[in-house]
């Protein structure tokens, strides 16, 4: 599904990713953990195609094509989805309209007919129920005046609706209470299937307790310094990152 090979990325002349390699197969859920400033968000943004990042070397292959050649919207058309750490507010852009434009843009890219308004509204209501997003928020401007938890739920709603092949969750769990965390985890677990892959970027083990990733990676100073199974997450929770970083230094 996704192969990242020796990826080096800098932001304003500063090296952030320093030779990152990662292989994510269909059907797998990978967790990426790591201390602040290790490059977790940079990795998420580069995969989604955000401006402002210079890829200085390395390759990213997604479903056999060079992902870095694609525009942001083309990546979305190909099934890449980024749940943002800080979902922006879009004043004046109606949430329902936004969801429909997005949903139909993806259908159109796949050569499918657009879903009519009534069928779409029904679909969105179902999905909104699943993620416990109050339906009145569908009528408001996108994320405008939403609480932190509501914004994250709106992200998970979009993920549920767009059914991506590769979903990247960039610290979606930050600032959430236990209930909201469960909703995020349920969203991920419901999408889990043999033909999908997910990358869950997080600081904490808590979300992973609900998601149970197949692989856990530790990202530090722009490289993946350790990978393992779910028990690695437990270990990190107990011991912190210090022992790994020290080992690296030694």
């Amino acid at each position: 599904m996704l192969t990242i090979n020796d990826l080096k990325v800098s932001v304003e002349q500063k090296d952030i990713l320093k030779g990152l390699s990662l292989q994510v197969n269909a059907g797998e859920v990978h967790a990426i953990m790591g201390p602040n400033g290790s490059g977790k968000s940079t990795l998420s943004h580069v995969l989604a195609g955000k401006d402002g990042y210079q890829v200085t070397s390395g390759t990213v292959t997604y479903k056999g094509t060079n992902l870095l050649d694609l525009e942001t919207e083309e990546r979305a058309h190909q099934g890449v989805f980024l749940a943002m750490q800080y979902p922006v507010e879009l004043p004046g852009v109606n949430n329902m309209v936004f969801l429909r434009e997005s949903y139909n843009a993806l259908r159109k890219a796949r050569g499918e007919a657009e879903l009519d308004s009534a069928a779409f509204i029904k679909l969105v209501r179902e999905k909104a129920d699943q993620v416990k997003l109050p339906s009145k928020l569908l009528k408001r401007s996108v994320n405008s005046g939403f609480s932190g938890g509501e914004k994250k739920r709106n992200e998970i709603l979009q993920m549920a609706l767009l059914e991506p092949s590769l979903a990247i969750l960039d610290e979606t769990d930050s600032g959430l209470d236990i209930d909201a965390l469960r909703i995020v985890a349920d969203g991920v677990n419901q999408l889990r299937s043999d033909d999908r892959a997910m990358i869950v970027v997080t600081h904490y083990q808590r979300l992973l307790d609900y998601i149970k990733p197949d692989v856990v990676h530790v990202l530090a100073d722009g490289q993946i310094i350790k990978s393992g199974d779910f028990s690695l997450a437990r270990e990190l929770e107990d011991k912190g990152y210090g022992w790994l970083l020290d080992g690296e230094a030694a």
Binding site: R75, L90, P91, A105
Partner: peptide, 20 residues
Amino acid sequence: FYLRSRGIDENHARSLLSLG
């Protein structure tokens, strides 16, 4: 970027935001 990351092409994204 947010709109584009949801598959909406750049021109349409700018139109939607302007209309907003």
